Computed example of a mutant assay.
Amino acid sequence: MLALVRLLQLASPALPVGAYTYSQGLEWLVESGEIKTEADVAEWIGDLLEFGVGSFEAPLLAALIGAWQRDDTIELARLNDDFLASRETAELRAETVQMGYSLVRLLSDLPGFAELAAGRERLLAIDEPAFPTAWAAAAAAWRIPGEMAVPAYLWAWLENQVMAAVKTVPLGQSAGQRLLAALGSRVPAVTERALALPEADWHNFTPGLALACSRHETQYTRLFRS
């Protein structure tokens, strides 16, 4: 039961890592007129869930949790570097580094993690811990199994994207809840595939996301940092 409570804490929008300040290119798509309706939002976020986050970030997160559990420092460094290299724009890379840094600082003060001195030292030894690396460290320290951690991580990402859409399109709160209900129903299947996906099949070929994030970097007026 405690593991579930810790997991809810990790997946909460109240986690002070700044996730709410990022839209991952969604703001530019709204500004450019590519996304105008609730249906447009559902299609965009759903595709990213399936073909981006669910096909690369989610299986990588599961691998990171396993590496933390095994205390495999070489594998941790490799996976962290792979994720940083996968960020295709300056904004996306800055996002994961900033959120990773914030989570590392937070974990240093939290009970149940700060007591694990060896784990804390290994996390601090990573030069630029990406957000999934730090998040996986907490999940492993709190003994949260991957089959629980991955859907929670996906849900947290999904909730943040929907809330960004609610603010920028804009959409009403009821529309936001409809989107969360519909897209959330896809999380179990995405999780099951991610947990079984061999590393050779991981992919995040989402050129639309890369273009949107690149354009956002020079967007004149904006609410979000990505």
Results as ranks from 00 to 15, higher is better:
residue 114 A to W: 04
residue 178 R to F: 14
residue 190 V to N: 06
residue 210 A to H: 02
residue 33 G to R: 13
residue 167 K to F: 07
residue 17 V to I: 13
residue 15 L to S: 03
residue 150 V to H: 07
residue 146 G to R: 15
residue 211 L to N: 08
residue 219 Q to N: 12
residue 82 D to R: 13
residue 170 P to I: 02
residue 15 L to H: 05
residue 178 R to H: 15
residue 225 R to V: 15
residue 221 T to E: 09
residue 202 W to F: 09
residue 224 F to H: 09
residue 124 L to H: 06
residue 205 F to Y: 15
residue 166 V to L: 08
residue 190 V to G: 12
residue 44 W to D: 13
residue 69 Q to R: 14
residue 147 E to F: 09
residue 178 R to I: 15
residue 184 G to V: 12
residue 128 E to G: 04
residue 177 Q to F: 00
residue 131 F to E: 07
residue 214 S to W: 14
residue 131 F to V: 09
residue 98 Q to D: 04
residue 92 L to R: 08
residue 42 A to E: 06
residue 72 D to R: 03
residue 126 I to G: 01
residue 163 M to G: 01
residue 193 R to D: 04
residue 138 A to M: 04
residue 118 A to E: 11
residue 214 S to F: 11
residue 168 T to E: 05
residue 76 L to T: 04
residue 153 Y to Q: 01
residue 46 G to T: 14
residue 220 Y to V: 13
residue 197 L to N: 11
residue 154 L to C: 04
residue 157 W to R: 04
residue 130 A to N: 00
residue 176 G to Q: 09
residue 36 K to W: 08
residue 202 W to T: 03
residue 162 V to C: 03
residue 191 T to H: 11
residue 124 L to K: 09
residue 206 T to F: 11
residue 108 S to Q: 08
residue 108 S to H: 09
residue 43 E to A: 10
residue 180 L to G: 11
residue 13 P to Q: 10
residue 57 E to P: 00
residue 12 S to L: 09
residue 113 F to E: 03
residue 226 S to V: 05
residue 171 L to W: 02
residue 172 G to S: 04
residue 93 R to K: 12
residue 64 L to R: 06
residue 173 Q to G: 05
residue 186 R to V: 14
residue 210 A to R: 12
residue 175 A to M: 08
residue 34 E to V: 10
residue 70 R to W: 00
residue 114 A to C: 14
residue 117 A to Y: 09
residue 175 A to R: 11
residue 123 L to D: 10
residue 191 T to E: 03
residue 35 I to D: 02
residue 193 R to P: 05
residue 71 D to F: 06
residue 151 P to T: 09
residue 135 W to V: 00
residue 143 R to L: 08
residue 127 D to S: 14
residue 179 L to C: 07
residue 27 E to S: 13
residue 56 F to R: 02
residue 6 R to V: 06
residue 161 Q to L: 08
residue 110 L to T: 02
residue 23 S to E: 02
residue 77 A to G: 09
residue 46 G to L: 11
residue 4 L to D: 12
residue 101 Y to H: 08
residue 88 E to D: 04
